[in-house]
Simulated assay, not measured.
Amino acid sequence: MPNKLISPEVEKFAQELESILQTGRHLLVIGEGDCESIVMCSCGVDIGVYRPDVAADLIVNDWQRHSMGLPWAQSR
């Protein structure tokens, strides 16, 4: 029997996350590039590419505006 590399807590979180994604809710996804943060929503919308000196509050604000259907400033 192979060893499990994922803790039960992580597996439970992954199952909860999968059910949340199926409801169509918006989750903020941030990936790191070479010298930028690549931000998108779990619904597939590209929020933008942000320089490292941009405050996290601005990134979250843009994502919140998207999730409420409001315009946001892309690529800061």
Rank of each mutant, 00 (worst) to 15 (best):
V10F: 03
R25G: 13
S75C: 12
M40P: 01
G48C: 06
C41G: 12
M68Y: 06
S7N: 07
E32V: 04
D53F: 01
R65M: 08
V10Q: 03
W63F: 12
Y50Q: 01
E18A: 14
I6F: 02
H66R: 09
G44I: 01
K4L: 07
H26M: 05
A55H: 01
S37N: 11
W72V: 02
M40C: 14
R65F: 04
N61Q: 15
M68Q: 15
N3W: 07
L58H: 10
D62L: 00
V45F: 11
E36S: 13
Q74H: 12
L5Y: 11
S67L: 02
V29W: 03
E36N: 13
E9N: 04
D46K: 15
I47Q: 06
I38E: 08
L5C: 04
I20Q: 03
D34Q: 13
L70G: 04
H26K: 04
G33M: 10
M40N: 12
P8S: 02
L17F: 01
C35W: 09
P2D: 12
V60E: 14
A55G: 00
V45W: 07
Q74G: 09
Q64R: 04
E9W: 01
I47H: 06
S67Q: 03
A73P: 05
C35I: 10
Q22V: 06
G69V: 08
A56I: 15
I30R: 09
L70A: 09
D46E: 12
I38K: 13
A14K: 07
I6K: 09
